[in-house]
Design a protein around this nucleic acid. Structure first.
Length: 204
DNA sequence: AAGATGAACAACCGCCATGTG
DNA sequence: TCACATGGCGGTTGTTCATCT
């Protein structure tokens, strides 16, 4: 477990503290390249071997929810919403199980989606009409999202970037840099230029 | 213009299941 | 069989940003 690693870190007091919080682009690239080359599995080893000051758990989560080439980002479609509601009515909060039926979607994404949007709408639906229908809920969702054109942090970071596993925009010292990292907008919580101010990885 | 509020999402935490020696 | 390491999952929290007042 993580506790074991932490205790080891305590024993070797000179070892740097395990990093927490938002991932930097540098870390993402390191992890992406390592997993692309060596494959995943044994995440603690991945974290160590890749030289990341992260727990294996953190690396796994980052890979699965974010870096995995087949992960889909962007708006949840109406079909997906229908499916989520249907499956949730059947299985409850079994997010990973539900996610398996939505290719490219992660359990975390579905969970967040449900908690922030669908749950709210279900509540609204219940208060206004106990016999609310899925269509009504979805229509409400569509109108609310289209009218507000709310720019979420992820949309800001990636737009509707769909990640193609074979699309690598550039390379840096032999390191493959996936297209996620080369979007013009800010990436995650940091700016690309913070790390490579002199390099244009878009090749422009 | 500035602060308050809420929405959205990334990431962590804790627990449990499984695998391995 | 037991102990430990690891992975997986669901719940929760923290941060950022857009909108509202």
């Amino acid at each position: 477990m993580e506790q074991g690693n932490n205790s080891n870190n305590n024993i070797h007091s000179q070892e740097p503290e395990v990093r927490k919080g938002p991932w930097t682009m540098e870390e993402d690239i390191i992890l992406f390249n390592y997993v692309s080359t060596h494959g995943d599995g044994n995440w603690n080893n991945v974290a160590r071997a890749a030289g990341l000051n992260r727990t294996g758990k953190s690396c796994r989560l980052r890979w699965l929810n974010y870096l995995r080439p087949d992960v889909r980002r962007g708006n949840i479609t109406q079909e997906e919403q229908m499916l989520i509601m249907d499956l949730h009515s059947r299985w409850g909060n079994r997010w990973s199980k539900i996610a398996k039926h939505l290719p490219g979607r992660t359990d975390n994404e579905i969970k967040n989606f449900w908690r922030t949007r669908m749950q709210k709408k279900v509540k609204q639906g219940e208060s206004s009409d106990n016999n609310c229908h899925l269509d009504a809920l979805l229509l409400a969702d569509e109108t609310s999202t289209s009218s507000t054109s709310h720019t979420t942090s992820s949309e800001q970071n990636y737009g509707n970037l769909s990640v193609n596993p074979n699309q690598h925009a550039a390379s840096l010292d032999g390191a493959i840099i996936p297209s996620q990292f080369t979007a013009e907008s800010n990436y995650n919580f940091w700016n690309f230029d913070e790390f490579w101010p002199d390099q244009s990885l878009n090749g422009d």
